[in-house]
Design a binder for these strands. Structure first.
Lengths: 348, 348
DNA sequence: TTGTATGCGTTATCAT
DNA sequence: ATGATAACGCATACAA
């Protein structure tokens, strides 16, 4: 079934049928009715290949997800799906490994699929600086800022990772912890890890002489968290009173490791995570964490992309985070200090 | 950049360029070399819209995922992605709500995208019986069996849900539990819930006079598990000694609820789950569960789909499950009974 | 308001 | 082994 058949069946011409199908003006109500009736009756769908070929673009939005085992990205994808479903932009979700180059991948997909826009879930400044210039369509980088990169067609929606990490570590120190280990990614490879590490460093400077017991790097996974915690306990012994994990999955892995060493959380070792994944609230103990507002990020990145597709200028949004205090961090000192710090959404 | 440009740049004609790009015979090595060099140099990609339009089909595989918040499906999608990535079939992943009709969705996508094959993650016999006949391309239903439906182009890869549930409940009873509650989905709506419920019923018949304390239905989510457990504790009081949750997310939600009632798992209430999601092994207690072998399911469904695309007849595979015994179930009696039951892979 | 004609980039058929 | 050309289904500029 093609629009040719539709034309034949309705008695109208190809042009009129096409106009009806695209909700264009200059069509009589009668024609519209007649044709739409047949469309409904026959369950007709436009051939997207022909449409896209003709229009020289595919009307679809490409989502490039960097890292498969990332619960935060999984949440984001789900929510982005839900928000784009209302529009008539089909979503093409493409997963790549953490160490692949997301911009190269985007370039290839652009050539092949000619999308109207791109959403990057995760990414590295380096890669963008090197090759993003070749990309013509509007794009939004999610979870990293792109404000400093200066591309006219690249927006970003991100959490202030440094500030958030700083806030997490400050919270531990405010609770009296001085022997702290941090678990995260390789700062050379993962920009997010680097930013969070810098946040930690900033927090440490507030307490002169304060140093980390250790910084263990790993992949962002439950197993990674477990293994890193194992190394922390081996190298620092039972001196450590608190751990900051740069992702909730790491925190959950670490907690299980702590239990397996016959220690308790938070009585013996406190743990704070990062992300705010749902399962953290159903853990025992409920995970204290720096929550990223995924719903907000999803809403905003979709909105910005749609706006920029419609010609709006690019924007760079910083999404607020919350220090979500539950049960996995113990106060060591008597000092009572309310530190439910959270930053405001700012536009830069 | 099109094959026209490629023809101009190489000095060959459109036909030759197309033949080279499609690895067809009857091309001189020289032409192949010259043209491929330019392709590589320029990073040329065929326009899939034009290709698909011409070929009257899209070469892509559609994956229809029923239910967004399903960790098991998320795992499957990830693994299917990985396995299809090696082929040159692009994957179109389409998420629909639990209560949408997956076959209608497939029909629409077939008309629009003309895929070579379809993967259904979740589905209902009813919907398939009603409308699957209209679908011409090979398809595989994953997590439900389609053996009894009798469609020549519909294969299936599934766990024996009834047997697996039976095995879970039997395990609880073998451990001495007699006051058991079950948490799952609405048997009217969810075929999987119905099968698992039937498995429970079968297990109960092994112990004459044995009845469930209650069967609570809910959505498959952490919150759902928590809320259902709340209802169990309210209606059955503290009589209940064990709970079978028809999904690990339900089990994790339930465990947290039990803790919040100042009861311990498994000392006061035992919990057994279903699925075998990774986080279960990092929980405290480690979750005893009926593990579905997602890697196997992913591998098999992709293999079967590719085979049937190549003309092989449809197949119906039952994937083995394991009773994975960890820490969340306590033995109430002294009776020592090894029941690490697991079924074998069978072809029906 | 409607109809007609052209071309998008590719594959495939035919001729050379 | 290669080149010319027609079609795939649609949107759109132009004609009526």
């Amino acid at each position: 079934m093609t629009i040719k058949d539709l034309a034949r069946l309705s008695g109208y011409s190809l042009g009129t049928v096409s106009r009806v199908l695209n909700n264009q003006p200059n069509v009589s109500d009668k024609a519209r009715e007649t044709i739409m009736a047949i469309v409904k009756e026959a369950g007709f769908e436009l051939n997207s290949n022909a449409k896209n070929l003709k229009q020289q673009r595919s009307n679809s939005i490409v989502v490039i997800v960097k890292g498969r085992a990332n619960e935060l990205f999984a949440q984001l994808v789900e929510q982005i799906q839900a928000r784009v479903a209302g529009t008539d932009y089909p979503l093409i979700v493409h997963y790549i490994d953490e160490d692949e180059n997301e911009v190269h991948c985007a370039l290839q997909l652009c050539r092949e699929k000619k999308p109207v826009g791109i959403l990057f879930l995760g990414g590295t400044s380096q890669n963008f600086l090197a090759d993003f210039g070749e990309i013509q369509v509007p794009a939004v980088l999610v979870t990293n800022t792109a404000a400093h990169l200066g591309f006219a067609n690249l927006s970003s929606v991100s959490t202030d990772d440094a500030a958030a990490a700083c806030s997490a570590l400050s919270y531990l120190m405010d609770q009296g912890h001085r022997e702290i280990a941090v678990i995260g990614g390789d700062c050379q490879v993962s920009e997010i890890s680097r930013l969070r590490y810098e946040g930690c460093a900033k927090a440490l400077r507030q307490y002169p002489g304060m140093e980390l017991c250790s910084y263990e790097t790993t992949r962002f996974s439950l197993q990674g968290g477990y293994a890193s915690m194992e190394r922390v306990l081996n190298s620092c012994g039972h001196r450590v009173t608190a751990v900051f994990a740069m992702a909730d999955v790491l925190a959950l892995g670490a907690i299980r490791c702590i239990y397996d060493h016959d220690l308790r959380v938070p009585e013996d070792v406190s743990v704070i995570g990062f992300d705010g994944v749902p399962v953290g609230r159903f853990y025992t103990p409920k995970l204290t964490t720096v929550r990223q507002q995924t719903e907000q990020m999803a809403t905003d990145c979709v909105k910005i992309l749609l706006d920029t597709i419609d010609g709006a200028p690019s924007r760079h949004l910083t999404i607020p985070y919350d220090l979500t205090i539950y049960e996995s961090v113990k106060r060591l000192n008597a000092e009572m200090k309310e530190d439910s710090k959270s930053c405001e959404a700012v536009e830069s």
